[in-house]
Amino acid sequence: MSQITNEGLILACSAIGAGLAVIAGIGPGVGQGYAAGQAAAAVGRNPGAKSDITTTMLLGQAVAETTGLYGLLIAFLLLFVKPLT
């Protein structure tokens, strides 16, 4: 244990932190799936409005994706920019 340097410890903890940060992907995954499911139901009820529904669904999903991307950005920062070392 004594040969672990300070820098190595920080790198290891950064990697763990990056892994924890991308757990944020759960939220957008659930949200996007729900939006897609609702859109599928809407197309089933009203097939004529398919193009409108698809556009609205994609827009909402792209906005819902943002929170997941914040987690991803933190992971990238920890892995590649290494602000703590």
Binding site: A62, V63, E65, T66, L69, Y70, L72, L73, F76
Partner: peptide, 16 residues
Amino acid sequence: FSLALRLYGNILSGTV
């Protein structure tokens, strides 16, 4: 910031 980060994060993740 949310507008900028959304665009940046999406394109950066694709690039990576």
